[in-house]
Structure formats: C-alpha cells, structure tokens
Design a protein around this nucleic acid. Structure first.
Lengths: 354, 354
DNA sequence: CGGTTTAACCCAATCGTTTAGGCACGGCGC
DNA sequence: GCGCCGTGCCTAAACGATTGGGTTAAACCG
C-alpha cells in the first residue's frame, strides 16, 4: 500500500524477471513480437500485483501523442449551451481515450494567442476552438500549428474544419409546425443582433412560407434584442397591430418567454388564442413555461461530438482537406402550438403545401 | 517558419553556443547560479529567435509537477451552474499557470474510479471533485492517493477539504428581504428532495422569522419537486388557503417561476398583491421573469475558485489539515418584493426585529 | 610562486516510456 | 560437425527537459 509513489515499468520488469522492453511489449500487445506464454502471464501478473499504470507523461514524451485535446472557447462555460458542447466533446474524446483540457479566453484575441501557446506547450494532440454562439471568427494564428477544428463557428476563410447548426433548416421546420397547424399569419420576432442566426433564421422562415405558398409580409417581422424584454416588446408590437397574427415564431427561447408575458398582458391564452414557437431549446426556459414551449433545438451535443471526432481523424491523417458540417436542428414539440383561433381563422381558404 | 517541429532546449543551446544546462539556468532564472550578462542576453535572444517554448511534458516528467488539475464531476457541464464553478476554478488555476482537465462520470461510482485513475496516470497535481448540487458524497477511493478538494459537496467524513454554500445564511437573508418589507405571513415553497438544501434552507427561513419574532407556522410550508410545475402546485396550495400569505419564499428559482404562473392564474400582480423571493439566481430565469425575481445567489464562481486555490495550497504543503469553507450566498435584488398588500396588511401591529 | 577562491560554465544522470537493432540458443537439414 | 533459421529476449538510444556535482581559468593572497 504505497502512499504516492506509483510502480514504474522497471518495477514490473524486476518483479517478473525480464527487461522493461519485454514488459512494454507484453503490456502494449505489440504486434509481431514473439513472447512465450509463460513470460506473458508472469508480466501481466506482476503488473497487476503492483497496480502498475504507465506514466502518460513519459509515454507522451516518447510517442509524441499525449491523448490531450485542447478545448478553447471565447465565453463558453458560463452559458448553459456550453455544457452540452463540452459534454459531446468529452464523450467523443473518451472514445479515443483522450481527455479535454479546458481554457477560455473571455474573447480577448491577445489572451487567445497566449492560451493556444499554453496548449501547444503541453503538446496537446489538437485543439477545438469553440464559439458560444454560432458566428464567423478569425481564429488565433497559433491554431495553424497543429490540427484544429472550429466548433459552432465558421472560419473567415475555409481553412479549418468546422461545424455549425443548420439554422435555416431548423427555422423552416419550426415555422412549418405553425403552418401545418393551420396558421397563415405568423409573426416573426427576430433577433436584432448582427450575427448569422439573424439572417439564417429569417431565411428559414421565408422558405417555410414559400413551401406553403404564403407570401412574405414584412409587417409581420420585428427585430429586437434577444432577451425576454426584447421578446416582450416585439410580441406586443405585433399583437397590437391592426391585423393580429395567430402565431409567433421567436428567434430565441428567451424572446419566446417575453412573448408569453405579452400574451398574458393582452389576456391571450396559449395556444388557444396564440401559438408560439421558439428557438434554442433552453430546457430551463422551454420546459418551465406554461404551457411548455415548442421550440427548435440547437444540436450542441452533436456539434461537440462531431468536432472532436473530426479532430481525431485529422490527427491521424494530417494533410487531409478541411471539411465543414451542418448539423440538423430538430423540433421539440411541447404544448404551445394549436390551431389558429376561430376569431381570425379562415379569412381566405386553406392553402396547402405547394 | 517551421510547420510543426518546435525548437528544443538543445537548439537554443547550440545557437547561443552554451550547454543546455546554462540555457535552463538562464531561462528559469535559477537563483544562486552565476551567469555573465553576455551569456544571458545571448541565450534569451536565441530563445526568442527560435520561438522556443519548453516542452511541458518533459518538464513535468523531470520535475514531477505537470501544472494540470483534474476536475471531476458527476453530472456537471450540463447545468448552467457548472459553468460558473468551472470558470472560477479555471481562473484560480490560471493564477498558478495551471490548466484544468475536465472529466465527468455521469454519477456512476465505477466510472468515477476509472476516471480518477485516468487523471492520476496523467500525473495531475491534484483533483477537484465537484458535485453539481450541494450534497454529501463518498468520493472515489483513488482520490486519497493525491491532493483533492470537494467542491459543492461535503465528504461523509471530514477527510477532504471541501467548500459549500452557506445555505442557511442565504436563506435567512432572502426571507429577511420579505420581513423587512413588512411581510409577516410568508409562505415557504420548499424542495421535497432529500438533500441538504431542503433542511438548511428551512433552517434559514426559521431563523429569519425568529429574528423578527414571528412564530413558525407549519401550515405556511409546502414541499414539492424543484421544478416550475412543483412551484406552481405549491404556490397554488398556499395561495388558496384560508388565510393567504402576502409573500412566498421559494426554494429554487424554477419553483419561483411556477409561483409566478400561479399568481397569474389567480390574477395576483407581483409585487403588488404578492411578493416573491427565489433561490439560486439562475440568471436565465430570474432575470427573464416579469417583474425581475429577487433571489439568493449560489456562489458557484467563488466556490470553484476557492476549491482550486485550496488545492494548490495543499499541493505545496502536503500533510496539511483539511479545511472546510462556507461561502456566503448574497441576495440579488430585483423587483419581485414590495410591501404587503393593503387587503391583508395590518392585522395586528408591526412587530420589529427583536 | 604555490595555493585558495571565485566566476562561469559543462557533463552526465535522471524522470518513465518506447523501439530499432542486436544476441544467444536450440533444432534442423545435409 | 557445420551453417542456418526461428524463437524469445535484451541493450541502449531516444523523447526534452532539470540538476547535482564537477571542471577550468583567472584573480587573489600572503
């Protein structure tokens, strides 16, 4: 029962009366090496007796492979999203017996360079560079010096492999929930921030309308800050319009929460008088609202997983071309969607999907 | 412009015409070593020219110090809380030029042992064992084999240093917000789960009442599951009672969200007809509700920070006694607390704090 | 002028592995 | 009896740092 000092390969060698070479061969099951059955059992037995575990540092020094993957993000861990990305990344890393080394820069490019340096010093096998919301980034220079993958971000040029959510498809699917339920006047409370999500979710919204042959009506869209406050304002603006929409599609769940509050203010019952669909699937919000919010989930777990898997492949096959993935955003159905309210329905037939 | 191959200490030595010994002495500013000014500049210059960075693996192998800290948690990353703990831990690690290696077990004790093993193989300097909500744990055996600290958890014996939130103090402070505003009938929607928070937050509630000389009324407490649903039910139960409380103290923010929904159902306006205080400060919830939820914050960032700082101390001074910290939970004031509604107020004078 | 200091370095071992390239020995064919 | 070939190991050189214990040459001392 040693307190700290772990057994080394030499201890195992001595105890089993062979050289460290042989121990290494046996324990690593090196192919093409001939070892007698007798020696094999003696060695494995000794290793077990001593609770021998190879020192990964030494191993890494020798093999130039540490089994460490750097996970560098801008603001990350703070957001609930981040957790799922990290989890996906971790699980994928575990498949290759690798571990994640976490670091976050707070968004400062200078800090970022330093942190990449720190990761490289530690001889990580590769680096995942994660953004905490989908956007276009110019990754730190240092990233070029080893395998790297962009997570929830697209590089300004296509230099690095990257993975992002299929915002357009998700958005379309979300709006189609409403269209399929019979809604034709669907308000869109969009995010006002200048990020990819804004234009992509709008594109999805328009695509869905088009599929159902509903013309895009500019007066049904407002843009606000992506908070409950913003959602509230936006929803109020749309709902107090002359011809009230029967449903709202909100660019984020927090905005959807604001829309709920607006509905309450106007004494509209969800989904009887107003249907709502959100985006993000922030469980804390979507699942806590009454009624539960139907929303589009961002595939953070899958993206994290994809990023690390891709990274591992690149590590094994350097010089491979960067690839770019688009992960689908599934709809999560809860109870905030129903048929349009009688009061407004049926103003002009029921167009079907084209 | 080398693609991958980093410069080694030997390269620096050759370029500056000295031995690696001297390079090491210069770069590490080893005290007591005499180096001529000339050599010093030649070496540092060469190191700079070559962009030399020591290989931390080799360094760690030799010095028995890796600058890696294992962060092992049960469910962690998934919850938004986790992020703040990790952030605090990271920042504290950065103070010592250390990095965090993340791992989570999903709660399976067997996996846990394996993961501790994996961390030890990698020669981490110490391990933080984090729970994602405050509770009593029996940490994996492997933890004994190196410095370790429990985060947001208490060991079943006092063997490991640990840090937990001051639930009692926080709870008391939260309830005092209501008492100070004049409330005397304060309902308590408690968590029904069998975890420390349940009894500790109750203790704080009672302490606060005592300070103000208000007798504890058992009929003012209900226990439900810690979700919006549970909060809704609990609040409904209390608010439909014969003598309605003028304020509610909810054991979690999600429950408080449910209480808001109950208030809406009963057409009670917050804080005019009903004041509410929550617990957790889940920003996503507390800050998104209308009106903003006054709540008690869990000091996740500080706990993470404390844990790593303590760990680093233990690494430098093994054999030191374990210490246990209690981090205060500050009240975060928003707009959900007001004076008691006229309808119910002034039924019997206004007791002052004892 | 011999001996002692001192300044300024350097040699080589070490941390714990992996791995290229031997080496010894027994059996086989001729 | 000799050469040859497997079989089953081992020796020693890495990997890239740190570090205890020198060594060398100049300066100093009496």
């Amino acid at each position: 029962m040693e307190l700290r000092g772990r057994a080394t390969i030499r201890d195992v060698a001595e105890r089993s009366g062979v050289s460290t070479t042989t121990v290494s061969h046996v324990l690593n099951e090196v192919p093409g090496k001939r070892i007698s059955e007798q020696t094999r059992v003696r060695v494995t037995q000794a290793a077990a007796d001593l609770h021998y575990r190879p020192n990964k540092l030494a191993q890494g020094l020798r093999t130039q492979r540490t089994g460490l993957i750097g996970f560098l993000s801008d603001h990350v861990s703070t957001t609930p999203f981040a957790g799922r990305m990290i989890l996906g990344a971790q699980d994928a890393a575990a498949e290759a017996a690798s571990l994640l080394v976490l670091l976050n820069s707070g968004g400062d490019p200078e800090v970022e360079e330093r942190e990449v340096e720190a990761l490289l010093e530690r001889q990580v096998d590769g680096i995942v560079y994660a953004a905490f919301y989908h956007r276009v980034v110019t990754p730190p220079q240092g990233l070029r010096r080893g395998p790297a993958v962009l997570l929830d971000a697209r590089g300004v040029d296509g230099e690095f492999s990257s993975v992002i959510p299929d915002e357009v498809g998700g958005s379309r699917a979300g709006v189609e929930q409403l269209l399929a339920a019979g809604h034709r006047r669907i308000g869109f409370v969009n995010n006002q921030d200048d990020i990819p999500a804004r234009t992509l979710r709008l594109a999805g919204y328009r695509q869905a309308l088009e599929v159902y042959g509903v013309p895009f009506d500019h007066s049904l869209m407002v843009e606000r800050e992506p908070s409950a406050r913003g959602g509230f304002d936006g929803a109020m603006a749309l709902l107090s319009g002359i011809e009230m929409p029967t449903a709202l599609f909100c660019a984020t769940d927090r905005m959807a929460m604001g829309a709920y509050q607006a509905a309450q203010e106007l004494s509209l019952s969800i989904p009887r008088d107003l249907s709502i669909v959100g985006f993000d699937d922030q469980e804390l919000v979507a699942d806590s609202l009454r009624p539960g919010l139907t929303t589009v989930a961002l595939p953070h777990y899958q993206m994290g997983q994809w990023a690390v898997r891709q990274l591992l492949e690149q590590i094994d096959a350097p010089e491979s071309q960067p690839t770019h993935a688009l992960i689908p955003c599934p709809v999560v159905r809860r109870e905030s969607v129903g048929p349009p309210s009688r009061a407004v329905r049926g103003l002009g037939g029921e167009p079907q999907p084209a």
